[in-house]
Simulated scan of single mutants.
Amino acid sequence: MGPDTHLLIVDDDERIRGLLQKFLIRNGFLVSVAKDAAQARRVLAGLEFDLIVMDVMMPGEDGVSLTRDLRNKRLATPILLLTARGETANRIEGLEAGADDYLVKPFEPKELLLRINAILRRVPAVRPAEPVRQVIHLGPVRYDLDRGEMWRGEAPVRLTATEAQLMRVFAAQPGVPISRDRLAGEAGGADAAQERAVDVQITRLRRKIEDDPKSPRYLQTVRGEGYMLQPD
């Protein structure tokens, strides 16, 4: 990643904040820190970041609630949540709120680095001043690739954070089957439970896209290979 990649660490534990800041600076990042949600908001009001690393458990407003609020305010910066609890419910809550990934404490700093680089690779590094609108047509439904927005005619179609993430993956490779395993990984961790969760998300997406979700025309099942988006 470029030497001007700017990260924000939000964690109430001063020791962890300091360790992560030192480690990430050594690995070539610019790093700012905030000790709680209120300070993070002040920093975010004045600076743009490439990625936010945020602890879930903080006094006052927690990381999931701050993530949800930032997404509601249309902040597109990737967010990696640090959680001390490995329960699926917390992970799913964080992803539903709009986080891009999560890491369960305690973790090796090297794993944090791998996750950060993986997320930054998924995000286009160059932000063109006026992007060419990329729109995928699925019958009466339009999906705007740049904004991650879906429309049916003039009505917006609301997508959950996970549905939006899956749509981004499909729309990046239309007509290419994508395995459940990879979709589960993109949606936050490849295990059997997560693969079942992907099937549920696909069913929900089909209800939003297809005229007849039982025999899908656009979001197809490819036997033995996974799922595929087949636009018009």
Rank of each mutant, 00 (worst) to 15 (best):
A161E: 05
R127C: 08
L95M: 13
E108L: 13
Y102D: 10
G148S: 06
G86N: 13
P124K: 10
V132S: 10
Y143Q: 09
H137W: 03
A125G: 06
L120A: 03
A171Q: 10
R142M: 13
L138W: 09
L138N: 09
G189Q: 03
D146W: 11
A97T: 05
Y102S: 09
A155N: 14
R91W: 01
I116Y: 02
L80N: 07
F170V: 04
D144H: 10
E111Q: 14
K110R: 13
R74D: 14
L120T: 01
R133M: 12
L80E: 02
I116Q: 01
A190K: 14
G148R: 04
A190W: 04
L80W: 07
A190P: 11
R152A: 13
P131W: 03
A187D: 03
Q173E: 10
P109C: 05
G98R: 03
P124A: 02
L183P: 02
G188S: 06
E195I: 12
G189C: 06
E87D: 14
P106C: 07
I92H: 12
A164M: 13
L81H: 05
T160E: 07
I178T: 11
V126D: 03
G153R: 06
D146M: 12
R147N: 11
I119A: 08
L66H: 00
D146F: 04
R71K: 15
P128T: 00
G175P: 04
P131S: 08
W151T: 13
R158V: 10
L82Y: 02
V126G: 00
T83Q: 10
G185Y: 10
N90Q: 15
A193D: 13
N90C: 07
N90T: 15
T162H: 00
A187K: 02
L112C: 05
L112T: 04
P131D: 07
P131H: 07
V157A: 05
A76L: 12
Q134I: 10
R182D: 10
R74I: 00
P124F: 01
E108Q: 14
R158Q: 11
M167W: 05
G98S: 02
I136Q: 02
D101H: 14
E154W: 09
P177T: 05
L159N: 11
E163S: 08
A99W: 07
T160R: 07
R147P: 00
V123T: 15
I116E: 00
R158N: 00
V123G: 01
V169L: 15
P106Y: 08
Q173Y: 09
P109L: 09
D69Y: 05
R91D: 01
K105E: 11
A184V: 09
A129D: 13
L80Q: 02
D146E: 15
L80H: 06
V126P: 00
P177C: 04
L70H: 02
K73F: 07
V169R: 13
I116W: 01
A171G: 14
L81C: 03
V123L: 04
V176D: 05
A125K: 12
G188R: 07
Q134F: 00
A187T: 04
L120S: 01
I92L: 15
A84D: 00
P106N: 10
T83C: 06
A192C: 00
R68G: 05
